[in-house]
Simulated assay, not measured.
Amino acid sequence: MNYKHLSLENRDGLLVVLLNRPESNNALNIRIRDELESVFSESRKDPQIRGILLGANGKNFCSGYDLEEVVETKLQSFRHRILEYHYELYSFPKPLVCVLKGFCSAGGFDLALSGDYILAEKKTFLFRPEIRFGGPPLITTLARKVGPTKALSLTLLGDPLRSQDALKLGIIDEVVTEGDSIAKGLKVLEKLSQWDPKLIRAEKEISNNFFQGNLYENLKKEFDLFKEFLENPNFLKIVSEYAKSIKQKV
């Protein structure tokens, strides 16, 4: 695949993947999600790739799904390979380090939560606004970090979290207060990827599937429940109004 919205660099087997739609705050349109799915799929099979560092160009990590595209496609962008995309990233069998900065919102928050180790710059904000406009935020993704009951309370509150608060809650693993956050992330990734790949794969399999049910089945059940919201004839109007309000604030 020709990667239009990702920047890739192989650093001695550690693949640096940067979201590259800075003019749109790295919003997740269909193309960038397909590109991410492709990169992770190919890296899964490539024995020369020991792990992935996921970061972003521009000021913000990711503002979430591209709501303009969602409205233009009459919600089809929401539906596009939603299960396949999430499962490809969350089930990645090699170490994955995410480096966050600026705003990390909605689908961008879920993308960040795919990391085995998550670093965030000091001024990072993490936000799940979907509940505010009647959309269903994912519980499975956040529950993997903080457990289902805490994931639920944070979701229903719908409040933004500063990086220091996210650290205290166990959502992220480290706050980078100075220096190059990508360089720091690479040091972590180097450490995580030093072990036997088969052992890493086994440990991730245990973490993903042995304690809170099967990852694939959990995601599938959650997305199946979401169909009720997407099929609501008023939902497109609600999302359109929310997208307009966000655009006016930018």
Results as ranks from 00 to 15, higher is better:
Leu6Thr: 08
Leu6Gly: 13
Arg11Asp: 12
Asp12Thr: 08
Asp12Asn: 15
Asp12Gln: 14
Leu18Phe: 12
Leu19Asn: 14
Leu19Ile: 09
Arg21Trp: 05
Glu23Leu: 10
Ser24Thr: 12
Asn26Thr: 10
Leu28Val: 12
Leu28His: 11
Asn29Leu: 01
Asn29Lys: 05
Ile32Asn: 03
Glu35Asp: 10
Glu37Asp: 08
Ser38Asp: 15
Lys45His: 08
Lys45Pro: 00
Gln48Ser: 15
Gln48Ile: 02
Ile49Trp: 03
Ile49Lys: 02
Leu53Glu: 00
Leu53Trp: 01
Ala56Phe: 09
Asn57Gln: 13
Ser63Arg: 01
Tyr65Asn: 07
Asp66Arg: 01
Asp66Ala: 10
Glu69Gln: 12
Val70Ala: 10
Val70Phe: 03
Val71Leu: 04
Gln76Phe: 06
Ser77Tyr: 00
Arg79Cys: 03
Leu89Pro: 07
Ser91Tyr: 04
Phe92Gly: 06
Leu96Ile: 09
Leu96Met: 11
Gly102Lys: 02
Gly102Thr: 10
Cys104Ser: 12
Ser105Asp: 09
Gly108Trp: 01
Phe109Thr: 04
Asp110Ile: 03
Gly115Leu: 02
Ile118His: 03
Leu119Ser: 01
Lys122Arg: 07
Lys122Pro: 00
Lys123Asp: 12
Thr124Leu: 06
Phe125Val: 14
Leu126Arg: 09
Phe127Trp: 13
Phe127Pro: 09
Arg128Asn: 07
Ile131Thr: 10
Ile131Ala: 07
Arg132Pro: 00
Arg132Gln: 09
Gly134Leu: 02
Pro137Gly: 06
Leu138Cys: 06
Lys145Phe: 04
Lys145Ser: 09
Thr149Phe: 10
Lys150Asn: 06
Ala151Lys: 05
Ser153Tyr: 01
Leu154Ser: 00
Thr155Gln: 03
Thr155Asn: 07
Thr155Tyr: 03
Gly158Cys: 00
Pro160Ala: 05
Pro160Tyr: 00
Gln164Leu: 02
Leu167Gly: 06
Gly170Asp: 07
Thr177Pro: 00
Glu178Ser: 09
Ser181Lys: 08
Ser181His: 11
Ala183Asn: 14
Lys184Leu: 11
Lys184Met: 15
Lys191Asn: 15
Ser193Tyr: 10
Pro197Trp: 12
Leu199Ile: 14
Ile200Tyr: 06
Ile200Leu: 14
Arg201Thr: 03
Arg201Asp: 02
Ala202Asp: 03
Glu203Ala: 13
Asn208Tyr: 15
Asn208Trp: 12
Phe210Thr: 13
Phe211His: 15
Leu215Gln: 14
Asn218Lys: 10
Lys221Ser: 14
Lys221Phe: 08
Lys221Arg: 15
Phe223Tyr: 13
Leu225Trp: 06
Phe226Glu: 11
Phe226Lys: 14
Lys227Val: 05
Glu231Phe: 06
Glu231Gln: 14
Phe235Cys: 11
Leu236Ala: 12
Ile238Gln: 11
Glu241Ala: 01
Lys244Phe: 07
Ser245Tyr: 10
Ser245Lys: 14
Lys247Ala: 14
Lys247Phe: 08
Gln248Trp: 12
Lys249Asn: 08
Val250Trp: 11
